[in-house]
């Protein structure tokens, strides 16, 4: 195969400028709507908090101070302390790291896997499609919590187990979506034209079909992140996620539920963090759909 350069390659700076321009426009589109703006800002904040947790957190998330256990929110401990006297705000801030890590690693696995399985099924159709989609259906019927329990039994509980267990069960919706998109795109005239000039199967899939499926997959993934946040917290609550003393939000609720009636803040604060995070991803996903997938625009 001979390499054909693009006519008059543009300078790097020009390309970069274009990319920056496109990103800027994209963010501007996202910011136009109040809800989308709110979701985007909250998610950005969460990411910043996760990155700069050591700088932001006023106290250590793990150092115990039994003398000041179960203190109500006050000027020194804004969100109060837990049963070991640890500052809840600091634990939440460090917990953001765990949550973001979980969400990003799961999305990084689920996105490509779902995309490739779905596009392959949709592009080839026929028997390949039937086999792949039945397999997807089977996986879809697995409850991720039960699978995680099995995994924990086999591999020992921990954050990695949780990530693997959730990833294994979270790709089918992405695959189904990618397949539906691929079914439409594979019959587009530009793909047919590419067949006529002899483009190979791999080239057709990765350069012609996949790029068209990516926007809706990103939207789906963002919406999925809300669900992942909840599932990860549930696993933590059951003691199958990150192990103590790491400040995992679900585990924090689980620990705080003993004091629910008298020291409500111990369980409520992490619950609120989970709510805020999953809401932010949902709202952001909705706004992304408006920007990336104009077919479903709400206006």
């Amino acid at each position: 195969m001979t390499y054909v350069p693009l006519p008059e390659r543009r300078s790097l700076r020009e390309n970069l400028g274009n990319m920056m321009g496109a990103t800027g426009r994209f963010v501007a589109d996202l910011m136009r709507e109040p809800l989308g703006r709110a979701g985007f800002i909250v998610v950005m904040l969460l990411i910043l908090i996760a990155i700069f947790a050591p700088l932001i957190a006023p106290y250590s998330p793990t150092r115990q101070a039994l003398g000041s256990a179960l203190q109500a929110p006050s000027a020194t401990h804004w969100l109060g302390t837990d049963e070991y006297g640890r500052d809840i705000l600091s634990r939440l801030i460090w917990g953001t790291r765990i949550t973001m890590q979980t969400i990003l690693s799961i999305s990084a696995i689920v996105g490509p896997v779902g995309l490739i399985i779905g596009v392959t099924a949709g592009f080839f159709g026929g028997r390949i499609d039937a086999v792949l989609m039945r397999f997807t259906d089977i996986v879809l019927s697995f409850p991720s919590l039960v699978l995680a329990l099995a995994f924990a039994a086999a591999m020992g509980a921990g954050l990695q187990t949780a990530i693997i267990a959730i990833s294994l069960t979270a790709w089918p919706p992405v695959a189904r979506l990618a397949r539906a998109e691929a079914l439409v795109v594979r019959n587009a005239d530009y793909v047919n034209a590419a067949r006529l000039y002899g483009a190979g199967k791999l080239r057709l899939i990765f350069l012609y079909v996949v790029p068209m499926c990516i926007p809706s997959v990103i939207v789906r993934l963002t919406l999925n992140m809300a669900t992942i946040t909840l599932t990860a917290a549930s696993l933590g609550f059951l003691g199958l996620g990150a192990q103590p003393p790491s400040p995992e939000w679900g585990a924090m609720i689980s620990a705080g539920r003993r004091f629910m009636l008298d020291q409500w803040w111990v369980a409520l604060m992490p619950g609120f963090a989970i709510l805020l995070t999953s809401l932010a991803f949902n709202v952001l996903g909705d706004a992304l759909r408006d920007v990336l997938d104009p077919r479903y625009t709400r206006k």
């Binding site: 195969m1 054909v4 350069p5």
Partner: peptide
């Protein structure tokens, strides 16, 4: 098309 057909191409 040139690339896929293995033909020489240029701007």
């Amino acid at each position: 098309p040139l690339r896929c057909m293995g033909l020489p191409g240029s701007p």
